[in-house]
């Protein structure tokens, strides 16, 4: 394994900017282009094969359903690039959604404070993960598997063995209904696009962002190169917590006026699936948030497409499984090719 430089980890030939000697990967990776192509082809085919796939009544709910997975996936992408993983996000959704729903129902909290509350709770839980992973010297999957169970316990205490009924439609601005869109564009997905764009710029064009690739490539080398590894890693988990807190509000918005204690269950798997399908290497060092958003979009497109074609709903599990294995296989091939090159 090559050592020191926090260099571009992408497979394809790096581009050297004229003067500064900065080395950057291509703006869009091969996997992202493939995903754009696959999603585009699927949308066209489904548009032709079904009565209403490309109508706004279908595309808007599809984008709304994609939003929370994509948003959480953006955070998880940064974590995975840094060589870690966060499997506790589903439980963070549970805690944040429970707190937010209770605040709206019991105290009549309006929109902005609810969002701030949920994001703050998410950030706090992310901080717990971050401190334990960055300073605990135990692999992130163990730490976050532990916090998955602990956070779930905390969330279930908020529920108190019941559901939260009669949630007022405060968060309808992020729902799939009329209140959830402006000029036909769903607010939740718009926010995802903004966050993804910011994360893309930060990961690609700031030193701090590049550091994540270096840490994921070889943490020891990164430390020797003068990167403050622990604070960086800590920040990735806090960021994931904050985004997951916001995603919890999206989840409430697309559910019913009752919140059940199984909210968020298994969401970490959907998020990790989106990340992996998006081309991020599960072993760290390589990846992109655009790929993750596209991965989430592909998964939801397949799930909706199968129903709209009238096929058995179980088929979506099959397709998602195939996508994951193909994506990981392509990643392994790429690594092998780079090493032998």
């Amino acid at each position: 394994m090559s050592a020191a430089a926090p260099a571009p980890p992408r497979g394809s030939a790096p581009r050297r900017a004229a003067g500064g000697g900065r080395v950057l990967p291509f703006p869009v990776t091969g996997q992202e282009l493939v995903l754009v192509g696959v999603v585009a082809v699927l949308w066209v085919v489904l548009g032709l094969a079904t009565p209403a796939f490309l109508s706004s009544g279908s595309i808007v709910p599809l984008l709304v359903a994609t939003a929370p997975i994509a948003l959480i996936g953006i955070g998880v992408t940064v974590v995975i690039i840094s060589g870690g993983i966060d499997v506790s996000v589903g439980s963070i959704v549970l805690v944040c959604a429970a707190v937010a729903a209770t605040a709206m129902t019991a105290s009549g909290l309006p929109l902005v404070p609810v969002l701030l509350l949920s994001v703050a709770v998410g950030g706090l839980l992310g901080l717990v993960n971050g401190v334990l992973v960055a300073y605990g010297r135990v692999h992130a999957i163990i730490i976050t598997f532990g916090t998955l169970n602990i956070f779930r316990f905390v969330g279930l205490q908020v529920f108190g063995g019941s559901t939260i009924d009669g949630i007022p439609p405060v968060l309808a601005v992020f729902g799939r209904g009329e209140a959830g869109r402006t000029l036909g564009v769903p607010h939740s997905f718009l926010l995802v696009a903004v966050v993804a764009a910011l994360a893309w710029v930060a990961l690609r064009h700031t030193a701090g962002g590049r550091h994540y690739y270096a840490i994921g490539g070889d943490a020891q080398a990164a430390r020797l190169a003068g990167i403050a590894v622990r604070p960086r890693v800590l920040l990735a988990y806090v960021l994931t917590g904050l985004l997951t807190g916001l995603a919890a509000c999206f989840v409430i918005a697309q559910g019913t006026s009752t919140l059940a204690p199984n909210v968020g269950l298994g969401l970490e798997l959907s998020a990790i699936a989106a990340v992996v399908i998006g081309g991020t290497s599960i072993t760290g060092g390589r990846g992109s948030v655009l790929g993750t958003v596209l991965g989430a979009l592909l998964v939801q497109t397949v799930a909706s497409g199968i129903i709209q074609l009238g096929w058995p709903s179980q088929l979506s599990s099959l397709f998602i499984g195939v996508f994951i294995i193909v994506a990981v296989g392509v990643d392994l091939l790429r690594q092998r090719r780079r090493r032998s090159a």
């Binding site: 009565p51 209403a52 009544g57 709910p61 359903a65 697309q254 909706s304 129903i307 074609l309």
Partner: peptide
Amino acid sequence: TQLATDLMNA
């Protein structure tokens, strides 16, 4: 909810 939406579109 999403499945019901898809069914209405289908």
